[in-house]
């Protein structure tokens, strides 16, 4: 039984070199539909993001008010929008995402992905974009609406901010997908993925700008993080663009940097996947 599976998997790679746009779209739609069935979990998630939104918002406003209204270039209303859009982004980019891929590798279920005539990284990316689209309509929209009602919320004043902000969110989703794929793929080598998962959720929430805007850090440190790590491109950049902390050429530059990281992380994911497939040993029968 098992040898025949191995043989099939070995014959396939030639077919897995590319993915048709149509396939990609269909997979994205399935991702959307799949997550739209988790209605109660979505509601629970919105509740939790909203609680944290209130919490962080009060803390940030207290910081701003004792610092004299403006802190690190953010006005009070800008911090409100920073916090609430950030709460919406958590699920949209899926920071703490699921460990599905990791556990599929550990259990060997990944074999059925490898047997499919589509390359796994783009296939997972398509499904993740569908998931993100559903999250944008629910887990992004709801907390942001609550924040806008409960606090003095900063709405972007420049027309250009809207398309640039939207682009920035999409790039953040793709970059975050790449990161999560790499973290999960660590299971090819380590089997138990909990360690890398913990390190990842720590890095992206602290270095990404969720706990505090990175601009609260000394300049040299914030700049280094921005350029040398993908984390600020996941949250800080879209939040700065949308709260108009960065505008004009500055904002465009940050989004361009984000695009570089998005491409780099997906490429890394594909490379790790190729190496990992050689390591994969499916046990049992």
């Amino acid at each position: 039984m098992l040898p025949s599976i191995t043989a099939t998997a070995a014959r396939r790679p030639a077919d897995r070199s590319h993915i048709h746009l149509q396939t990609f779209v269909v997979l994205a739609k399935t991702g959307f539909r799949r997550y739209s069935t988790y209605r109660q979990a979505t509601l629970a998630g919105i509740f939790t993001n909203t609680v944290f939104g209130f919490l962080r918002c009060y803390v940030m406003l207290a910081v701003a008010s004792s610092a004299g209204g403006t802190v690190a270039g953010y006005g009070g209303a800008q911090l409100v929008s920073y916090v609430w859009v950030g709460q919406g982004m958590i699920a949209t980019i899926g920071i703490w995402g699921d460990t599905e891929l990791g556990s599929r590798i550990r259990t060997g279920a990944i074999v059925s992905d490898l047997l499919r005539p589509v390359p796994p990284v783009p296939a997972y990316l398509a499904a993740d974009l569908g998931r993100a689209a559903f999250s944008l309509l629910t887990r992004f929209a709801a907390p942001v609406a609550v924040g806008a009602i409960a606090f003095d919320f900063y709405l972007p004043r420049r027309v250009a901010t809207y398309p640039l902000g939207a682009l920035s969110i999409v790039l953040a989703v793709i970059a975050c997908f790449g990161c999560r794929y790499v973290v999960n793929a660590a299971a090819y080598w380590l089997l138990d993925g909990r360690g890398p998962q913990a390190a990842w959720s720590l890095a992206c929430s602290v270095l990404g700008g969720l706990y505090f805007p990175l601009r609260f850090l000394p300049d040299w440190l914030a700049t280094t993080l921005w350029i040398a790590t993908p984390f600020p491109s996941l949250l800080q950049t879209p939040l700065d663009v949308i709260s108009e902390r960065s505008t004009g050429a500055n904002a465009v530059g940050l989004v361009a940097l984000q695009a570089v990281w998005a491409v780099a992380m997906v490429a890394l994911a594909a490379a790790v996947q190729r190496r990992g497939e050689h390591r994969l040993v499916v046990q049992g029968g």
Binding site: Q40, T42, A44, T48, F52
Partner: peptide, 15 residues
Amino acid sequence: DSGEFGSGFTYGGRD
């Protein structure tokens, strides 16, 4: 299907 509901009070309480 309570999902992350509890985190709002546990981790939320911590913060």
